[in-house]
Nucleic acid binder design. Sequence first.
DNA 1: CAGGTTAGGTGTACGCCGTACACCAGTCAA
DNA 2: TTGACTGGTGTACGGCGTACACCTAACCTG
Lengths: 236, 236
Amino acid sequence: MAEQVETARRAPLTRDRVLRTAVALADRTGIESLSMRNLAQELGVVPMALYKHVANKDELLAGMIDIVVAEIDPPVAGDWKQAVRRRVLSARRMLLRHPWASLAIESRTTATPAVLAYLDSTVGALRSSGFSTDLAHHVMHALGSRVLGFSQELFDASRQAGRSGATVPEAPADLPPEAAARFPHLAAIATAASHDGDSVVGPGCDDQFEFEFALDLLLDGIDRLHRNGWTSHRPG
Amino acid sequence: MAEQVETARRAPLTRDRVLRTAVALADRTGIESLSMRNLAQELGVVPMALYKHVANKDELLAGMIDIVVAEIDPPVAGDWKQAVRRRVLSARRMLLRHPWASLAIESRTTATPAVLAYLDSTVGALRSSGFSTDLAHHVMHALGSRVLGFSQELFDASRQAGRSGATVPEAPADLPPEAAARFPHLAAIATAASHDGDSVVGPGCDDQFEFEFALDLLLDGIDRLHRNGWTSHRPG
DNA sequence: CAGGTTAGGTGTACGCCGTACACCAGTCAA
DNA sequence: TTGACTGGTGTACGGCGTACACCTAACCTG
């Protein structure tokens, strides 16, 4: 009867509940410590029970990706530049909420349906602004990882792969002293205060600023190509 | 005595031999099937023998990364743009030789010394062309993954994570039919021949072209900023 | 040459992992 | 009533990384 109580108490297992619990668990404890056994325990169930709802761990991961990619805001109507910009920034916010997602998406061998849908509607925004399929094609490549909001923060503490959610956003992210000596240019760049003339870049590295800087650099370049009626002209 | 022969036949184990064999094995069979046991067998040795030369698997991976990153051509003197361009393209060639490397580098929580050295000398090339540390900082972020030669080929057959070396470069990389119906924009973009006016983009997707397109887009934008004496001006 | 130290390869074992397979308790249609 | 179907269980297997104790051969020192 104790078993009956337990069984009655817990919500019934569904594919959706499995996936959402997996996302929450990965958010909390990192992707590398997400195991089928772990997830089963979180759900108060025996590991093999999960296999009645997902085929295997790879499909679990695909399902998790679909869930978080679906969190990205739908495209807005109007100016393609604004639309793409908002979209990419929304994707970025999603990735900050789910730090494991970028690596999970990157390491997949095949894109999931939700990822394809996201890419497709982004292309749609370009096309409806008069981009040729040709240019749109190249633009998607050019946006590259950024199209999904990655920022590839190379020496950023917050990138500690899949560490638990709360990161200290103002951490100066300095190099260790001996590395600073060996890599002076990096050290200069990583150093908090910029001593360059009238620069007003504050201490530390503002990820958001970096991200938008890079994004606008790309968008401006793309806009210029678009306005000039750019078309590809390969030697071959 | 048979053992003696065996022992005599095989070269002595060294850290370098372990790392290089690991790189070769990963090149051949993919990173996901590279295990300590596997590698040990390849070296004709018992798994635990490896631990006399590397502390653990993570350090093994770090060592492998250092080896392949060291294959990137050193920076050339002169024009920063040429220097960065050559460097990044050299990095890309390295990554094509070692398909597992991009993911391995990305998934690391801390950069390896060789990666830091690579980044540092790239920054050096910018600084010696008169870039402010401020602008150089942002440029490194903007180059983002591209600074290491990634191209993030989202629906490219060759990205089959860590599959064995020989990829068919001319594979059209089409979407499966039912996906093409659901994602028309993607389908249009992925479709071999571009029907856009005077576009001469041939069949399929030329990765190299895409990569250089994106790279030049960034470089041109950066050059414009540099020539205009750009400096950051954040609201905060 | 004797004896001790040490570097490097070995063997065993532990605790994780994903998951195949047989089982079993309900539920529900015929 | 019965028989199939759905979904949770229990056991077990082979693989993984690696801790730990061991052995052996080379080498230094007296």
